[in-house]
Nucleic acid binder design. Structure first.
Lengths: 229, 229
DNA sequence: TCAGAAGTTTGCGCAAACGCAACGTTTGCA
DNA sequence: TGCAAACGTTGCGTTTGCGCAAACTTCTGA
């Protein structure tokens, strides 16, 4: 296990209210792991025996339908806990977590969860805030899917991605990990064809630039307008 | 406040692990309230100063878009807690709760939440299981909306409703509270026209019977098939 | 009891988005 | 270096489900 600095965890929500000793103790029980792009950190339905903290990279949380189609439920940006099934009373992971880029994560055996929750005071509260945020996000997704057209949904998806893991570059803001049209279509409930067409149109319009597995939003403000406020 | 029997709460998840004294104590702090059909128990964005336990009736949890369209996020069946914003670190209600039928609910000031969680052991865990279930339901909704056609979505919505609050009658299973085509369309992200057409077709087919504000599924099994397993 | 509100049905035309198919381009690996 | 796999583009026909409109039925309350 590499040497880990507690200053790494200090600013992150679940630890923000803990003292140095507590963080040190938690950190000592963690294992650092690396996952290649495309690798599954855990699979839907498997026993939830670890929980994770994403140090670097992005995680794509997907569910697979009976027909084998993938649906992306959520993206997890660096700095967040994930795989915290126990917090919701689950014994198995409710979805599959895939590394959208190369990923570094800390992992703890799930058996420690209970003790962290009872031992460290802010831990539970801060965790449930994260879950609250995710519930809010999911709710927003449902509303979108119910009322918005494909164009607006894709615009929102891109905005959400640049909010979470956008990088400022000279031409605008680019999404911080490799992403295909297929990926975007799985986030928005469309087909890769529709996404491709739309991105082409937007590119002609100067709204975005896109290379293979890379999308850069040149005009975020116009994108917000397009997304329907 | 009417006289309440603790045998009322005993079998419900959040209380199932508590002893009689604890239940009695919690019950003594509750206020019983009645809401007319269509009344809002609380509104999105308002300070979350009470949480509720639904004793009788059904609650419809809705969000309203910027354009004024309603989207139904969830239905809450009798026996469940709702309005538990604090559990997710919120200070305001994230959605509006409307009585789908006449409703009886117990309410507690949100200030008691913290003390129940810390004082009674099973309370938190059981509550988070409920939230876990709801997250799972929302996830399923997102997957559906992404991959299924209107017909399958409506079939699923009806199945979900009869699972939660179905009543066996001679012709089949009927939904236990008044529900309009508009309501169904708001649950499935369609229009009342499409729902009406579909129900008419199904009725001709012998799959359902429907009167004004009432839907009865005659052949649940065929409905499951239609819903796409 | 009767007027109007609320809920439902149905027809028709149309647009959004899908499905299929074929072809172009980049990348990684043998 | 060259080939196969992965990724992306684009055209065309088709379908689903929406939008609008009009008429009908059931319920409610003055």
């Amino acid at each position: 296990m590499p040497k880990l600095d507690e200053s790494l965890l200090r600013p992150l929500p679940p630890f923000s209210k803990l003292d140095e000793g507590a963080i040190r103790a938690i950190l000592d029980q963690a294992t650092s792991r690396r996952f290649d792009k495309g690798a599954a950190v855990f699979d839907e339905g498997m026993p939830a025996d670890n929980f994770y903290l994403l140090l670097d990279g992005t995680i794509r949380v997907v569910r697979i339908t009976a027909e084998g189609e993938q649906v992306t439920a959520l993206h997890i940006p660096a700095g967040q806990l994930f795989g915290i099934a126990k917090a919701l009373g689950r014994d198995t992971y409710p979805a599959t977590a895939i590394a959208a880029s190369e990923v570094i994560a800390l992992s703890w055996p799930m058996t420690l969860w209970q003790s962290y929750v009872s031992q460290y005071d802010g831990f539970a509260t801060e965790t449930y805030k994260i879950i609250g945020d995710r519930v809010g996000e999911m709710n927003a997704r449902i509303v979108e899917m119910s009322t918005q057209h494909v164009e607006q949904r894709i615009a929102r998806a891109l905005l959400r991605l640049i909010n979470q893991s956008g990088r400022k570059v000279t031409e605008g803001i680019e999404i911080g990990f490799p992403i295909t049209r297929q990926d975007v279509s799985e986030m928005t409930g469309t087909t890769l064809h529709t996404v491709s067409r739309l991105l082409s149109a937007w590119e002609k319009d100067g709204l975005v630039t896109s290379k293979r597995k890379k999308i850069t939003v040149r005009d975020p403000h116009r994108m917000v307008v397009l997304s329907g406020a």
